[in-house]
Simulated assay, not measured.
Amino acid sequence: MTRSVIFDFDGTLAIGHGPVVAYAKQVAPSAGADFVQRVEEALRTFDAGRSTYRDGYHVVGELAAQDGVSSGTMNQAYQASREILGTAEAPVAAPEGLAGLLEALREHAELHLATNAPGVGVEQVLDSWGVRHLFDHLHFSVGKPDGLYPILREALQLGPVMAIGDIVEFDLQPAIDLGADTALVGATAAESDADVTLRGETLNDLRGELVTWAAQPPTQ
């Protein structure tokens, strides 16, 4: 039996609104006045737990839609922002002790990264953090939530699965549907009424519980 841990990237492994603000800046020339400032204000509300947005990208998308920005422009802006991911123009931070957590989990489980983002930008960030080699499987442009089901089903054939993410409907609901364990992190974790296994502000808050889960002996 092989346990598997499936991580989301943005908002789970990559912390901070740098990439979202970079995205907003790419959109801004096609949006209304003070677009970036409006995004930043909405992000502060989201961080305070007083928002119905899923995450920062949802903020940008909704405000841009209100300004009449086309989907084609949004796609181009998103791709441009991902190309500078992890640079000073789109900074991100890893949760404290990420490498140590991944190493501890890897002693007992296969580690997956499953993100809707393209590989560009994400791989360079993982390399810069020195953790890319700790993942057994990297899944990009997954198309969550639907695209997460086959990844989960394949992993569940091997043993128990823990899905970790910051957006319930994208990162965790497929796992809930299939009977896998789940961990919700991020700004919505404290107030969400989702039926998840674990929850915490960051991965570091769940370190002990995640390692304990991964180290559980096989059951007959």
Rank of each mutant, 00 (worst) to 15 (best):
A190V: 13
G143F: 00
L102V: 11
F7W: 03
D195L: 10
R38P: 10
Q76W: 10
L198F: 15
E103C: 03
A90S: 15
P118A: 14
E154T: 11
N204V: 02
P145S: 03
A77R: 00
S70G: 01
I15S: 04
P118L: 04
A48R: 15
L113S: 09
Y23W: 10
R199Y: 14
V39L: 06
A214R: 01
A189V: 06
R82D: 13
G32V: 08
R106S: 12
A48W: 08
A24K: 00
V39Q: 06
E107I: 00
E169L: 08
L210Q: 07
I176G: 02
F140N: 00
R44K: 15
A48P: 13
G208M: 08
M162H: 07
R50I: 09
G200N: 03
I151N: 01
Y23M: 14
S4E: 06
G208L: 11
L203C: 05
L102D: 10
E107Y: 01
A31G: 06
R54Y: 10
A183H: 00
G121F: 07
T219D: 12
A180C: 15
E169M: 06
I6Y: 07
V20I: 15
F140Y: 14
D47C: 08
E154P: 00
L158D: 10
V211P: 01
P218L: 14
G179S: 05
V120K: 12
A77M: 08
W213K: 08
V59N: 05
P150A: 10
V161W: 05
P95H: 11
H133N: 11
D146R: 14
G11P: 05
D166T: 09
F135W: 06
I6D: 02
L126N: 00
H139G: 03
T2E: 14
K144H: 09
L172D: 04
